[in-house]
């Protein structure tokens, strides 16, 4: 089966000396909810941002549904939804205007966008605030809006950087369910998290990165072995 995201020897250095990520190889299959864990500065965000087309890189390649991010970024972006850890959105727009803008970029018809926006806004309890300026939103509300912006174009691949930070418990449950629904229909999710409990419960696969190098990857049960993911992670950070 062709991976939805195929990371092939990806390396990135910001200053030309120290490697932020070094020779990363990873394949994310359709239906995968893939957790990406590591300490601060390990290279998680760099990897996600490079896959999303935000970061330029020279070494290695990343293929989204068989298409190289370097060779045809546009084709890849049509299939991706990227949700950053800090959702800096256009604060001068209202929530509704922002979602309309995203829908315009992805060429979503009027009926579909209304239907999807209504559905996800209701699910994440944001309907009443869509007419407000984003500058008046809390961090959690911005995070919800960024997610709705990702959901409405039905992407094949979700790239999420700490997606649950700032969300209220009800929204976390709803987002998890929406993610599962997408993956059941053949999409995949690749997300970074520091909450290992969430990763253990939600992810069918995890990858562990330390100082830019991958130290473990595979089905969650295999990676954690007999103990919890937290125990494995703490041990791996000491040993590797």
């Amino acid at each position: 089966m062709q991976p939805i995201l195929d990371i092939r020897g990806f390396s990135k250095s910001y200053d030309g000396k120290a490697m932020a990520v070094d020779g990363l190889r990873l394949a994310i299959q359709p239906g995968d909810i893939y957790g990406f864990i590591g300490k601060n500065g390990a290279g998680k965000t760099t990897t996600l941002r490079a896959a999303a087309g935000i970061l330029r890189f020279d070494t290695g390649d990343m293929l989204v549904d068989g298409v190289s991010v370097k060779a045809d970024p546009l084709q890849c972006k049509r299939k991706i939804a990227y949700i950053p850890d800090n959702p800096d959105l256009y604060e001068f727009l209202t929530g509704r205007q922002y979602l309309d803008f995203v829908a315009d970029l992805f060429d979503i018809s009027r009926e579909e966008r209304h239907q999807r926006i209504a559905h996800y806004a209701q699910a994440l309890d944001l309907t009443d605030r869509l007419g407000d300026l984003i500058s008046s939103y809390s961090h959690g509300m911005k995070q919800k809006l960024a997610m709705i912006g990702g959901f409405i174009h039905r992407p094949l691949l979700f790239l999420m950087d700490e997606p649950f930070v700032g969300l209220d418990p009800e929204a976390v449950v709803r987002v998890r369910q929406i993610i599962r629904d997408f993956c059941a229909q053949g999409s995949a999710v690749f997300f970074s998290t520091h909450v290992l409990e969430v990763a253990q419960k939600l992810c069918n696969k995890v990858a562990v990165i330390k100082e830019g190098r991958l130290i473990a990857a595979g089905p969650t049960d295999q990676v954690r072995g007999q103990g919890s993911l937290e125990e494995y992670f703490l041990e791996a950070m000491r040993d590797a």
Binding site: Y90, L93, R96, Q97, D100, F101, D104, L105, G131, L133
Partner: peptide
């Protein structure tokens, strides 16, 4: 806190409208 929905536009004009806003 105010706002209203816009009508669908092709990407180029959606981006131009965003610049205007």
């Amino acid at each position: 806190a105010h706002g209203h929905a816009g009508r669908p536009l092709p990407p180029l004009w959606a981006l131009v409208r965003k610049e205007w806003r």
